[in-house]
């Protein structure tokens, strides 16, 4: 009984953590303006978020054949999802001619300077 309760709490905590990661990633995806910044949000959240969610489900169901299948799903996702984000980022870099302008690194002095200029 205690073990069951512990398992439930653990799986719930893992699922909630995964949900938090996914939601924060989606918020970042919509808040950022430029493609590469969006990738910075999108490429990071899905690996960790999906792994946490699936771990939660695995703990909840206990050890079965389906658990092994979920492990395979995690492996495939960890392999494919970062590679696809990497390709999208590389595509953006090869296509965009005004990369320096879009990705200009602004330190505090230049920002203040621009504000005063306005």
């Amino acid at each position: 009984m205690l073990l069951e309760g512990l398992r439930f709490v653990l799986s719930a905590a893992l699922s909630l953590a995964g949900l938090f990661v996914l939601i924060s990633g989606v918020v970042g995806l919509f808040r950022f303006k430029y493609a590469l910044s969006r990738i910075h949000a999108a490429a990071l959240f899905d690996t960790l978020g999906i792994v946490l969610m699936l771990l939660g489900v695995m703990v909840a169901t206990g050890f079965e054949v389906a658990t092994l299948k979920m492990l395979i799903v995690i492996c495939i996702l960890w392999m494919t999802s970062p590679v696809s984000s990497h390709l999208i980022g590389r595509m953006e870099i090869t296509i965009n001619d005004e990369l320096e302008k879009d990705m200009a690194v602004l330190d505090k002095r230049t920002v203040r300077h621009e504000k005063e200029g306005d």
Partner: peptide, 16 residues
């Protein structure tokens, strides 16, 4: 312009 001969993609693809 397409990313050709991408080493990361090639390694993953040869496995997948």
């Amino acid at each position: 312009y397409e990313p050709k001969n991408d080493l990361i993609l090639q390694r993953i693809a040869s496995f997948l």
